[in-house]
């Protein structure tokens, strides 16, 4: 959960790092990427017209005003789901790849045909999940499917992390999830109210110069994708001050809380 938010923020963050980025909304049923990027009013053509060759790709692409390195190819009509094939997706992605350093595909939820179409067009994948049993189980299904489709590498982003609950062991820990899913960790995004505010405005957090914790996490993910080594800090283990150090010590010696 958090796929579209990640796609929007990662797109902007990569663009800020000087990469040319195309983001493709492959969630034809529940398109949202345009809204999260604040581009919903500037859509003229969609992937549908591009595939039908009734318009050129550059006519359909919507450039982001502040970050012109980023362009969105909007999802077409939800009925596209009925006829779209994996080959169609590969065609579109191929066109986008010719003109961009990165093509980010926002996949639909689930493991149905819509997801398989999106996966068929992907070389590698980022799986994003929250540290909850049902979400991790679903993620495991998706990872199994990606393996059969030969999409690799697959990396993991853990979203909506609540450091306090994790520290209290009232939530699956970061290690629990990475152990269980056996994937390398690409990023940790905290639960952050600013995500909702930024969605309201259609301005991804990564546009800001001093981003909130989640915004910084998305920026770090982008830098790691570009090969920079930025240490991953487990927020549930990070504590400051004397009181916190005392609590930590107590936690370690008693193993109680």
């Amino acid at each position: 959960m958090g796929k579209t938010t990640l796609t929007a923020n990662l797109g902007i963050a990569l663009a800020r790092l000087g990469k040319t980025v195309a983001v493709l909304d492959a969630d034809f049923g529940l398109r949202n990427l345009d809204l999260l990027l604040g581009l919903e009013n500037r859509i003229i053509y969609t992937a549908q017209e591009v595939l039908a060759t009734t318009c050129r790709l550059d006519q359909a692409l919507v450039k982001h005003k502040q970050q012109p390195n980023l362009a969105l190819l909007p999802a077409g009509n939800p009925r596209m789901l009925e006829w779209l094939t994996p080959e169609d997706m590969q065609t579109i992605t191929g066109l986008l790849a010719e003109r961009s350093d990165y093509v980010l595909i926002d996949a639909p939820a689930g493991i149905e045909q819509g997801f398989k179409n999106a996966a068929a067009a992907a070389r590698e994948a980022i799986v994003i999940t929250t540290p909850e049993v049902s979400a991790v189980r679903d993620a495991d299904r998706v990872i199994g499917l990606l393996a059969t489709m030969d999409v690799k590498p697959v990396q993991l982003v853990l979203n909506r992390v609540r450091p306090k609950m994790m520290a209290n062991q009232e939530m699956l820990s970061v290690d629990d999830v990475t152990d269980i899913l056996a994937l390398p960790l690409l990023g940790l995004v905290q639960e952050d109210e600013r995500v909702i505010v930024s969605t309201n405005r259609g301005e991804p957090l990564t546009l800001e110069d001093n981003p909130s914790p989640a915004g910084q996490a998305y920026l770090n993910i982008a830098s790691r994708l570009c090969g920079e080594e930025i240490p991953l800090i487990d927020p549930s283990k990070k504590r400051h001050g004397l009181r916190a150090r005392l609590i930590n010590k107590l936690r370690k010696t008693t193993g109680l809380f």
């Binding site: 189980r137 495991d140 062991q169 009232e170 939530m171 699956l172 820990s173 629990d176 809380f257």
Partner: peptide, 26 residues
């Protein structure tokens, strides 16, 4: 309850339940 060892933290239960269900799913 935790102090008296009557109850496991729910995170631990989550891990154990997941491992079991995933072994079967997989």
């Amino acid at each position: 309850n935790r102090l008296l060892g009557r109850e496991k933290p729910s995170g631990t239960m989550a891990r154990q339940r997941l491992q079991l269900v995933l072994a079967h799913d997989r």
